[in-house]
């Protein structure tokens, strides 16, 4: 039923329309004590088969953005105030919950940071992947489901002979592979990976990242990669958005962010904070201070308080977005250029 409805909706590929487009999304968490402004009017575009990296620190609103796309914000506190999330041109925020359920996993899947809590410890791995397959393909026979499970496990580099094992029999890296297999089993068009390798050791992280890259190239799945690690962004992403205090302060292609000449001061600070393997500098250059309190955001630029280039206007007026080709910057430093355009 749900799947039929899903097909009748125009959620499939439309040429010329980006796979996912977020327009001016605002999401909050409201409790009786305070309102956390988690996401404040962000816009982004993910094209078919491309990987978009959303970088930022804890509390920047990355995960909230991801949960908003799937409409999985905690129902008691989370709320999307305004904005549109267009998937192949259809606004996901207007779909009914039944259809949305089919979208989750069927068209958009998500991989969470902690593979340990994403798997149910009392079911074997093949039962869990099988369930995900059956949910979206109710007409599959038992054999078809089983074949698909084997295929998926092979895809993520796990021997199908281990499919009757329970999650605790796998190591962290292997569990994350199982989770990715589950996420990909229904051939979603978009995979949201929320810090998929943060819980893993570096050598295992390298293995999982290599696998994600290979799968993406083979299956052509578009990806939203959420991470705090600019190294991972450099390795996997085509486009990048730098998030700070619920806003995308700088966005562009990976080249714009890593090689471009103009940057948001926060991006510069982020790069300077990372201990560099090649340079011989002994002191790091951290960004002073802390991220502003999301329950009480400043009136002007959100980064003003920590910014070394802070001007009077930054404290009072929110900067406009300066667009230079594919590169977008939200900072008063570029006001002159904004006027020229």
């Amino acid at each position: 039923m749900k799947t039929e409805e899903l097909k009748s909706l125009n959620l499939q590929d439309t040429p010329g329309v980006p796979l996912l487009e977020i327009k001016n999304l605002r999401a909050i968490y409201k409790t009786d004590l305070e309102t956390v402004e988690a996401v404040n009017g962000i816009s982004l575009q993910i094209n078919k088969g491309k990987t978009f990296g959303l970088v930022g620190e804890t509390g920047a609103g990355k995960t909230t953005t991801a949960l908003s796309i799937l409409r999985l914000l905690p129902s008691t506190t989370g709320r999307i105030l305004e904005g549109e999330i267009l998937f192949n041109g259809t606004n996901l925020l207007e779909l009914d919950e039944g259809v949305m359920r089919a979208v989750r996993g069927g068209l958009i899947s998500m991989v969470f940071q902690d593979p340990m809590s994403a798997l149910n410890p009392v079911y074997t791995v093949d039962e869990q992947i099988g369930e995900a397959i059956r949910l979206h393909n109710p007409d599959y026979t038992k054999e078809q489901v089983e074949d698909r499970v084997d295929e998926m496990l092979q895809l993520v580099g796990i021997l199908p002979s281990r499919k009757h094992d329970y999650p605790h029999q796998f190591s962290g890296g292997m569990k994350q592979r199982v989770v990715i297999a589950m996420a990909l089993c229904c051939e979603p068009h978009l995979l949201i990976a929320d810090e998929p390798t943060t819980a893993l050791d570096v050598t295992i992280q390298a293995q999982v990242l290599a696998m994600i890259r290979e799968l993406r190239d083979r299956l052509g799945t578009a990806m939203l990669m959420i991470t705090h690690d600019l190294g991972i962004v450099a390795q996997t992403c085509d486009d990048v958005g730098v998030m700070y205090a619920g806003e995308i302060v700088e966005a562009g292609t990976a080249e714009d962010i890593f090689l471009g000449k103009e940057h948001h001061p926060y991006t510069v600070g982020l790069f300077d904070s990372i201990p560099n393997l090649t340079s011989r500098a002994t002191r790091l250059k951290p960004i002073p201070g802390l991220m502003p309190d999301p329950t009480n955001l400043p009136k002007g630029c959100v980064f003003a308080e920590r910014c070394s280039h802070c001007m009077e206007i930054c404290k009072t007026e929110h900067p406009k977005i300066y667009v230079n080709g594919t590169h977008k910057l939200c900072c008063h430093l570029f006001d002159d250029k904004l006027k020229q355009n």
């Binding site: 570096v202 390298a206 293995q207 890259r213 690690d229 190294g231 890593f258 090689l259």
Partner: peptide
Amino acid sequence: KALLAAIPEPDLIRSRTKKLEVIRGEV
């Protein structure tokens, strides 16, 4: 060597040209 190679470097050119060296297996 494997540990050093596994660190994702925030350097676009190096990470695009460098072949990702991955050691097999787990601890």
